[in-house]
Design a binder for these strands. Structure first.
Length: 770
DNA sequence: TCGGTCTGTCATGCT
DNA sequence: AAAGCATGACAGACC
């Protein structure tokens, strides 16, 4: 993705330069700053809405502070704007600022009405498909009315649990619902997740405006395009957030594309237990939830969290003293035993994560993180350790996408001591959604690559080693013996071989290559052959030189071969090049020995081929070279000119057949050798590419790890700066920040223990003030 | 002497 | 149908 962007950006720049050269003025700033979302997206990177994970929203807003006009007045609310900017700076992709709304939500246990907590997600903190749920009728008044009745908070919790644990629209697996009976932990987790989503999505505070929300809830789905200007951006953003449905999708990447982003302003708002927001802007939690298509958000969140988890799992070196849970999870990640999730996460998600972690030593804890986040019951209880390590597959990713509603940031951001109050929550270090953008695309590829590497016996250490080796670009080498055959050389040899082959073939037809390339020599030999003056010195050496011997010198494999490869060289040329050859080289010992035993005239026979000897014996009136290399017509004419016996004709035809077949065999072997060389080169290239990809993967992992650490620190910093109405800091052990899909940030209490309490919204909802 | 390699040759199939 | 080419298989020569 990044490469694509880079490529696109460069191309656009070049195109712009071209336009400027031809006199066309191109105002890049206009394109970038004004309303050309696609171009801006291409250049600056996908906005949060475009990407399923809204991480970019935070990071992209770093240079877009105050872009959103509506968010200007909200800057004062959050002094942690700077922090957000830092968060935004985690990514190189920049989009307008993100607005972070923090809500303090208290469950009101008294108003718990719903009997079936699992199946009735009343409202949703994220885009709120639950708003339209018939079961949510009780919750709806609270949300719309903004009265802040207990139902609203309760419904929120319900929605949270339902969303977080299972996909609200029924995509979730039955098991996931079953595991949601204990809403207490789930609610907390969901709240955290919601908060995280808010951060990720960078929802503007106007998103939480009740009127807007109500309007959106009524209009957004059926008429997403009809939103007013004030809500238009939010609508776009939400649409972008939604993975599916009517959301705008990047044509290239298929990612959701927000046209505009709300300015990033962290707006901490705490909803009182009565459901009335203490601040003027405070609204019932229910209304805060964007009603649009929670399922999509769930999937998106799933992907994001999974990617983050994988990354977190991979960061072995992470040494955050407070992230005990995370470390535990990571440590246990390699072992599949820690499948138990604390937060009622659908169990099916676990295998997916495990797939990743199991196949990659570098991604140990990914799988466990999810379950712990979503399935509190499963945390310490008896979840049968998944011994099987299903491979990461597209199906897994789809599963992941299908069930994630909200994410819990507490585990990630809060130090362990903070989380210690609720072990279930604390034990689940959740990676911040903002990371998921990066992770989502890169991690899957990386995982696949890593799997591939692992399958080939690559360990991560080896991969790292590889990457080190690749730095010098000299680490890879196939066979040392084949070093000379560089890609180019290989090609050269190949081409030369091909050319030689073709040339030989052509020359064969022309009679220029092979046994007689020189007409004069052929003539002489013919005369000699006809006369019977066979030259004993013409040995096998001469016959073997039909190809340029230099070609073989380029082949390292042939270096050690002492054979004479001067195939089919013309006799004259052979003599010219090696006047001493007839009695030297190759078979010298044998020939010397033979020379001592044989008379000089037999020496020719010794150095001639069998066919030559046969031809001489049969008194063939022309040379074998002529027999072999003459074209068919000339050959027939030659035969016709001489009155030859049947035996002579048969021998001549056999000589021609064998001679041609010999050249064919030589060519065939040459081609075979070239093929092998090319294959070797191809393997070498592939290995080089593989190493490069592994190196890139490591770099991505490294950068993501850094961003995650930064996010953790930012979370802690933000949390520590939060104050209640009375100016007291929220104890981390009792509260946690949750980030909803719509961009709102909520401060949620941790201490709900029973499902009953979970169903009941907190009575105390305090305004959170920065 | 043995094993590996190279080379030539044959058989076969295809063009 | 003949000629040529490509290639696997085999054997001999060579190292």
């Amino acid at each position: 993705m990044l490469y694509l962007k880079k490529y696109f950006t460069e191309g656009l720049i070049q195109f712009t330069i071209l336009l400027s050269l031809i006199g066309v003025r191109v105002d890049v700033d206009t394109y970038l700053n004004n309303q050309l979302p696609p171009l801006r997206e291409i250049i600056l990177g996908p906005s949060s809405a475009y990407t399923q994970t809204q991480f970019h929203n935070l990071r992209n807003t770093l240079d877009g502070n105050g872009i959103h006009p509506k968010s200007v007045d909200l800057d004062q609310f959050f002094t942690t704007r700077r922090l957000l900017n830092q968060v935004r700076q985690l990514d190189r992709i920049f989009v307008p600022s993100t607005e972070l709304n923090t809500w303090l939500v208290h469950r009101d246990s008294e108003t718990v009405v719903s009997t079936s907590s699992q199946s009735s997600p009343s409202i949703t903190l994220d885009n709120g498909g639950g708003l339209e749920d018939a079961n949510n009728l009780d919750a709806t008044p609270a949300m719309r009315g903004g009265s802040g009745t207990p139902e609203s908070t309760y419904n929120l919790n319900e929605a949270d649990s339902s969303l977080g644990a299972v996909a609200p629209e029924g995509n979730q697996e039955p098991s996931s619902r079953d595991g949601n009976d204990d809403l207490t932990k789930e609610d907390i987790d969901l709240i955290d997740i919601l908060w995280r989503q808010d951060i990720d999505l960078g929802a503007g505070r106007e998103v939480f405006n009740y009127s807007n929300r109500q309007k959106e809830s009524e209009e957004q789905k059926p008429h997403p395009q009809e939103n007013k200007d004030g809500n238009e951006e939010q609508e776009r953003w939400r649409n972008g957030v939604n993975l599916q449905g009517a959301q705008p999708v990047d044509g290239e990447t298929g990612e959701s594309i927000p046209e505009q982003f709300p300015a990033s302003v962290v707006t901490p708002e705490i909803v009182s237990n009565e459901g009335v927001a203490s601040t003027s802007q405070s609204l019932p939690l229910a209304p805060q939830l964007p009603p649009a298509e929670p399922q999509l958000d769930l999937e998106q969140q799933w992907q994001d969290i999974m990617a983050i988890m994988e990354l977190q799992a991979m960061e072995v070196n992470i040494t955050s003293p407070h992230s005990n849970s995370s470390s535990d999870i990571e440590s246990s990640g390699s072992t599949e035993s820690t499948t138990g999730g604390n937060f009622g996460l659908p169990t099916h998600s676990t295998p997916v994560n495990q797939d990743v972690s199991l196949h990659q030593a570098s991604l140990p804890s990914c799988s466990q993180d999810f379950p712990q986040i979503f399935n509190p019951q499963l945390n310490s209880t008896s979840n049968p350790p998944r011994t099987t390590m299903p491979r990461l597959a597209s199906s897994n990713s789809s599963n992941i996408n299908s069930t994630f509603g909200v994410t819990n940031l507490t585990g990630i951001f809060l130090p362990p001591h903070i989380n210690s109050s609720s072990t279930n929550i604390t034990s689940t270090p959740i990676l911040p959604d903002p990371f998921s953008n990066l992770l989502e695309e890169s991690m899957l590829d990386e995982i696949s690559l890593l799997d591939l590497a692992m399958e080939e016996g690559f360990s991560q250490a080896q991969a790292s080693q590889l990457e080190d080796e690749l730095d010098s670009d000299s680490g890879l080498s196939l066979d040392s013996s084949h070093s000379p055959a560089s890609p180019s050389s290989s090609e050269t040899s190949c081409s030369s071989a091909a050319s030689s082959s073709s040339t030989s073939a052509t020359f064969s037809e022309e009679g220029a290559v092979g046994y007689s390339t020189d007409s004069e020599v052929a003539t002489v030999e013919t005369e000699e052959g006809a006369v019977g003056g066979y030259q004993p010195g013409y040995s096998k050496l001469c016959r073997m030189s039909y190809q340029d011997p230099s070609q073989f010198h380029s082949l390292p494999q042939l270096d050690g071969i002492s054979h004479n490869h001067t195939y089919n060289l013309p006799l004259a040329s052979a003599f010219t090049e090696h006047p001493e050859l007839p009695i030297s080289i190759g078979k010298k010992t044998v020939r010397d020995k033979h020379n001592k035993l044989q008379p000089p005239q037999d020496l020719l026979d010794k150095h001639s081929s069998r066919d030559e000897r046969r031809a001489r014996a049969m008194k063939i009136p022309f040379s074998n070279e002529k027999i072999i290399n003459l074209p068919v017509e000339e050959f027939n004419e030659l035969l016709a000119k001489h009155h030859l016996s049947e035996g002579q004709l048969a021998l001549i035809r056999d000589i021609r057949r064998r001679g041609k077949n010999k050249m064919a065999a030589q060519n065939c072997r040459k081609r075979k050798l070239d093929t092998i060389i090319n294959l070797e080169q191809g393997v070498q290239d592939l290995r080089r590419d593989k190493s490069r990809l592994l190196k890139e993967k490591m770099e991505f992992i490294r950068s993501i790890r850094q961003m995650k650490q930064k996010m953790q620190s930012l979370y802690q910093e933000v949390f520590t700066q939060l104050r209640d109405e009375e100016g007291r800091p929220y104890p981390p052990s009792e509260y946690s920040l949750q980030y909803s899909a719509d961009g709102s940030v909520l401060i949620m209490p941790r201490g709900v223990t029973t499902a009953e309490q979970n169903r009941k919204p907190e009575k105390k909802q305090k305004d959170k003030k920065k």
